[in-house]
């Protein structure tokens, strides 16, 4: 989805009579140069287009893309199309807008232009789609593999039904404090993008899914599927493919304890495999 931007809260009729507050952020003559790797369809060739956008303070990458939609003309004056990209909440919680910003995987909504432009404000910005996922168009990629993986590890609590069965078992705050951070995963797939092991050769499942398996193994009722999840994670592309580059935990915008989850799952998977070897 593309989105355009509005100025700071428009004044109400009251305000016009009462005060003259400088609600509008002042535009300067500075501009921002953005080069964007574009691709019209999954099959077509990629090409780079460069845009020049008037600078305003506190802009983020999604507002830059919104500005381009308002006036889709390249720096050389060629009329083009608005950029396709995924975005929804714009506050780094829906996980949609992951892309490569200056080569690095980041969330476009929380990537602030002032920071990207460097201390002198003269840096350039490049945007490209995530490199490990099939491009749909421009900056939009298909990340459905993550949702498929969540199915494979049965990332859910198999409740009996939605009818009223009273409260869940009590849970000490310490358990909640361990589970909550894992439950903050926004499925942005940045941990997968930055992982050297996540690629077509290994078919690695990626840190996000492993962390979710741990989350549900820790739930008192979710633990009923723990052996299933651990067996799934011992399949090709499972936890063993992790080589502990630890990029995931560095790049995760939500600071999930991903390496800890991988480590824990590594142990649990091993124990399960040994158990299975002797009992199945």
């Amino acid at each position: 989805m593309s989105t355009a931007t509005l100025e700071a809260p428009a004044k109400s009729p009251m305000s016009t009579s009462v005060s003259e507050t400088p609600a509008r952020t002042r535009a300067t003559n500075r501009t921002i140069k953005v080069s964007i790797k574009r691709q019209a369809s999954p099959e077509s060739k990629a090409a780079t287009e460069t845009f020049e956008i008037p600078y305003r303070p506190n802009m983020n990458i999604t507002s830059l893309l919104g500005e381009i939609a308002l006036n889709p003309t390249t720096v050389t004056g060629v009329d083009t199309t608005p950029i396709s990209y995924d975005a929804n909440c714009l506050e780094e919680i829906c996980g949609s807008c992951a892309m490569l910003i200056n080569g690095k995987a980041m969330m476009a909504c929380s990537a602030l232009v002032d920071k990207l432009m460097g201390p002198n404000g003269d840096g350039a910005i490049t945007l490209a789609p995530l490199s490990k996922f099939p491009v749909v168009r421009d900056l939009a990629v298909d990340r459905s593999v993550l949702f498929e993986n969540l199915k494979k590890v049965k990332a859910w609590v198999p409740i009996d039904g939605t009818y009223d069965l009273g409260p869940a078992p009590r849970q000490f705050p310490q358990v909640q404090e361990q589970r909550y951070p894992l439950s903050n995963c926004i499925s942005c797939t940045i941990c997968m993008e930055v992982c050297p092991q996540f690629n077509e050769a290994t078919g690695f499942v990626g840190a996000a899914t492993i962390a979710q398996a741990k989350l549900f193994n820790m739930d008192p009722a979710g633990a009923v599927l723990k052996p299933d999840r651990l067996r799934a994670l011992a399949g090709d592309g499972g936890v063993q493919e992790c080589s502990f580059s630890q990029n995931c935990v560095q790049a995760c915008p939500k600071q999930l304890p991903l390496t800890e989850a991988i480590s824990d799952m590594g142990r649990d998977v091993f124990v399960q495999q040994v158990k299975d070897f002797f009992t199945r």
Partner: peptide, 16 residues
């Protein structure tokens, strides 16, 4: 049909 990296082959294979 998914392209790109394929989903986990849950419980399959011997790479583990």
């Amino acid at each position: 049909t998914l392209r790109g990296v394929q989903p986990l082959r849950a419980g399959q294979g011997h790479s583990y």
